[in-house]
Computed example of a mutant assay.
Amino acid sequence: MGSTVLSLRIDGELLDRLRSHAAKRGMSVQDYVARTLIREDFDERFKTAVDETEKFYGPEGAEGAEAGQEPRTAPAPPLDHVRPSAGIA
Results as ranks from 00 to 15, higher is better:
residue 1 M to T: 13
residue 1 M to W: 06
residue 2 G to T: 09
residue 3 S to C: 07
residue 3 S to T: 11
residue 4 T to N: 07
residue 5 V to H: 15
residue 5 V to Y: 09
residue 6 L to H: 09
residue 6 L to I: 15
residue 6 L to E: 09
residue 6 L to D: 02
residue 7 S to G: 08
residue 8 L to W: 00
residue 8 L to T: 12
residue 9 R to I: 07
residue 10 I to D: 04
residue 12 G to D: 12
residue 15 L to F: 09
residue 19 R to K: 13
residue 20 S to D: 15
residue 20 S to V: 07
residue 20 S to Y: 10
residue 21 H to P: 03
residue 21 H to I: 08
residue 23 A to P: 03
residue 23 A to K: 08
residue 24 K to P: 02
residue 25 R to F: 00
residue 27 M to F: 03
residue 27 M to V: 02
residue 29 V to R: 00
residue 31 D to H: 08
residue 31 D to F: 01
residue 32 Y to V: 00
residue 33 V to Y: 01
residue 33 V to T: 04
residue 35 R to Q: 10
residue 36 T to Q: 04
residue 36 T to P: 00
residue 38 I to M: 03
residue 38 I to V: 05
residue 39 R to D: 11
residue 39 R to C: 04
residue 41 D to E: 03
residue 41 D to I: 00
residue 42 F to G: 01
residue 43 D to C: 14
residue 44 E to Y: 05
residue 44 E to S: 12
residue 45 R to A: 09
residue 45 R to I: 04
residue 46 F to P: 00
residue 46 F to H: 11
residue 46 F to M: 09
residue 46 F to I: 13
residue 48 T to V: 06
residue 49 A to Y: 02
residue 50 V to K: 02
residue 50 V to S: 03
residue 51 D to S: 10
residue 52 E to S: 14
residue 52 E to K: 07
residue 52 E to L: 12
residue 53 T to S: 06
residue 54 E to T: 05
residue 55 K to R: 14
residue 56 F to C: 01
residue 57 Y to M: 03
residue 58 G to V: 01
residue 58 G to S: 07
residue 58 G to D: 04
residue 58 G to H: 04
residue 59 P to F: 02
residue 59 P to N: 04
residue 62 A to H: 14
residue 62 A to Y: 07
residue 64 G to L: 01
residue 65 A to E: 09
residue 66 E to F: 10
residue 66 E to W: 06
residue 66 E to L: 14
residue 68 G to Q: 03
residue 68 G to F: 02
residue 69 Q to Y: 03
residue 70 E to H: 12
residue 70 E to T: 15
residue 71 P to G: 05
residue 71 P to A: 05
residue 73 T to E: 11
residue 73 T to L: 10
residue 73 T to R: 15
residue 74 A to M: 15
residue 76 A to W: 07
residue 76 A to M: 11
residue 77 P to C: 07
residue 77 P to F: 08
residue 78 P to K: 03
residue 80 D to T: 08
residue 81 H to T: 03
residue 81 H to M: 09
residue 81 H to W: 12
residue 82 V to W: 05
residue 83 R to F: 10
residue 84 P to S: 07
residue 84 P to E: 03
residue 87 G to S: 02
residue 87 G to W: 05
residue 89 A to N: 10
residue 89 A to Q: 10
